[in-house]
Write a protein that binds this DNA or RNA. Sequence first.
DNA 1: AATATCGATTGATCGAAATCAAACCGCCAT
DNA 2: ATGGCGGTTTGATTTCGATCAATCGATATT
Lengths: 228, 228
Amino acid sequence: MVNKILRLNSRDRNILMKAPIMASLGPQALNRMMDLASAVSFEGRDILFREGEAADVFYCVLSGYVRLYRLNKDGREADIRICGPGENFAECLLYLGPNYRYNAQAAEAVTLARFDLAKVRAAAEQDNDIARSIMQSLANHLLTVMDCVANDRLQTAPQRVAHYLLNNCPKESTSASIRLPFQKSLLAGKLGLAPEALSRAFSALRGAGVTVRGRLIQINDVNALRQI
Amino acid sequence: MVNKILRLNSRDRNILMKAPIMASLGPQALNRMMDLASAVSFEGRDILFREGEAADVFYCVLSGYVRLYRLNKDGREADIRICGPGENFAECLLYLGPNYRYNAQAAEAVTLARFDLAKVRAAAEQDNDIARSIMQSLANHLLTVMDCVANDRLQTAPQRVAHYLLNNCPKESTSASIRLPFQKSLLAGKLGLAPEALSRAFSALRGAGVTVRGRLIQINDVNALRQI
DNA sequence: AATATCGATTGATCGAAATCAAACCGCCAT
DNA sequence: ATGGCGGTTTGATTTCGATCAATCGATATT
């Protein structure tokens, strides 16, 4: 099921070097990590791995979006995180048990950089730069997921959507227009909502000057959104 | 508001050395970290720090429980994590911005080990053992909080309670009795429930052989709980 | 022993979002 | 144009848990 694994082409190398986990490395550590990376791509809906499978690699997204999610015993799915270009996932397994702890699926066609867990672990032991970069990544993800718990527990659907929009429009602007980088159903999952609930949340925000047409979202009054 | 800061007494030293973040260190790194630790204690309800405050230390719980939580703009609170003996928190700030990202409150009288962020950061740069231990801690917390998101999104109140009970009774047993280590209201918050909802969830589990008296919980049939 | 206090429970009601079902809408292929 | 097709929207209903209010119970206080 794994698509063919290749050396990275020069375009992918450029993208990867800008990813946070690589960008903060010194030149030596960067080379070392780049040498460990291989490229792999998947079609939309492909499963990258499943919860419980033996974990040998972690990933960094080069293009497209990947959905990390869990299943309950009825087969219902809940997204834990949506990873876009520059984001890495499953790096937490560098220092945890031998199995993946959630499912990962390509939300659309994706290309990924692939890192052997054991090799990166060894590299981190020898190069503090790499260890520091991993710690930063882990700390960032931890905070992101904590935000997610707090948002789920404190905010209503329209508030979550408003929050998302505010985090994705330029700071210090009175109005903005945003193009969603993925389908609405994916955004719904990311926010812990059913697609219908997202749709209704957008309707509710019309009163606060939010206009939706396809993936295009117009925000007339950013400050009004902050009051939601 | 900070209680007096002291050297650790020998009892506290023993507890701290068994904490995961310390227990995985080699002898040299362990000494180094132990030298950085100081002791501090708080009364129940005391606020250790607030979201947005400048962060200079992280903590490891020696006794009691600490509540990490966020506020929404109406002042409603949502717990993000409950930390008990041996658990550390705010260590994610070693590699993040300069401010605390959530509030921390003593759920009861607590004693804590206190680590200067800058000093530990410096120690981690020099000692791979310490860096590895921090990465393990971050990875574990990340996974724990991811579990929390998934549970919130996938499970009903009785299921969350059943899940908690199963995680806190000996593996491979047909029946068990558990003593809650803290108030039910704290457990409610940890599970993302109002206290009333926790109470009702316990009632709902009576049918699955769960008996509650104060902090004492009897589980007649562990396997029945797994089916919830 | 009487009383104040705090946490837990129970009951009644409300509200938010999930679910189920149907309609809608661009988009592509024929 | 015609006809699907997948994603989105809208409507109706249901479910779950929050909230509000009252009671209960156990522990501390005097």
